[in-house]
């Protein structure tokens, strides 16, 4: 745990001392602000439902840009071998890097606090729905970070890792949209794989153990796969 904490601190230092995190935060807030005001102006609804779905899409494209360097850069620079032969357990290394992305996402979501404040100021939003929506988005961030980290573990090239992360996540986001054009037997599978379907209950103000488990399993699976890839590099 201490090793994971040390990795997390080091990653956060690297993240926030590089311009990448700040540009990422600003770009995300600009896009988020655009979607928020566009949603408010076009629907007049005291809800974040529309903007959260759009933020999810933005995160799919943006978050892999943050996670792409986490392992690919170590591989390219040759520091991964040092890390793998150091006394730091592999699990701690992965958890530390993943947690760093999650902390960045937490900062990001905290910076969107003016959105619900505006809704409270000019309307009467459902506060329970706001809380569960943010929780759903946080679970999404955890899942995206894990998948991005996995993509980063597969390549030395940061760009390949970044694009790989997006390509990995996109089908999970679009899976629900394919229902109706695929054979009927495939529909429940696609619904089960779809991020959007699992976010629906959060957007309704519902905490559903089935959906929470799905996000936890998705995240754990990609962290495990990252561990396997790094483990195989250790013995390759």
């Amino acid at each position: 745990m201490a090793s994971a904490w040390a990795i997390l601190k080091k990653e956060l230092r690297v993240l926030f001392l590089s311009p990448l995190a700040w540009v990422f935060l600003s770009a995300f807030l600009l896009l988020g602000g655009f979607f928020f005001t566009w949603g408010v102006a076009s629907t007049g609804e005291a809800s974040l439902r529309g903007v959260l779905a759009n933020l999810g899409v933005v995160l799919i494209f943006c978050l892999p840009l943050v996670t792409m360097r986490q392992l690919a850069e170590e591989l390219r620079a040759g520091t991964l071998e040092l890390l793998l032969t150091s006394p730091v357990p592999l699990g701690a290394l992965i958890l530390g890097k993943w947690a760093a992305s999650c902390v960045l996402c937490l900062v990001l979501l905290a910076l969107t606090a003016p959105y619900p404040l505006v809704l409270v100021l000019y309307g009467d939003p459902d506060r329970g729905v706001l809380v569960t929506s943010y929780l759903g988005l946080m679970l999404c961030c955890g899942a995206f970070s894990a998948a991005g980290l996995f993509a980063s573990s597969l390549s030395r090239d940061q760009m390949v890792a970044g694009v790989g992360g997006v390509l990995l996540l996109l089908p999970f986001w679009l899976a629900g949209g394919a229902v109706g054009v695929v054979p009927v037997w495939l529909e429940p599978v696609l619904m089960q794989l779809s991020f959007v379907e699992h976010l629906r209950s959060f957007a309704q103000g519902v905490l559903d153990t089935g959906d929470i488990t799905w996000f936890v399993c998705f995240t754990s699976l990609f962290l495990f796969l990252t561990w396997r890839v790094l483990e195989s590099r250790r013995w390759a």
């Binding site: 602000g33 928020f36 609804e45 910076l111 000019y122 459902d126």
Partner: peptide, 30 residues
Amino acid sequence: IRRLTMTPEQLTRVRWLVMGALPLVVLLVG
């Protein structure tokens, strides 16, 4: 559906806040 009660002027102010001031402050801190 819960609605917002907002004048166009207020919406403009909100737009400036969330699309202008907020990203700019973060960029400046960076």
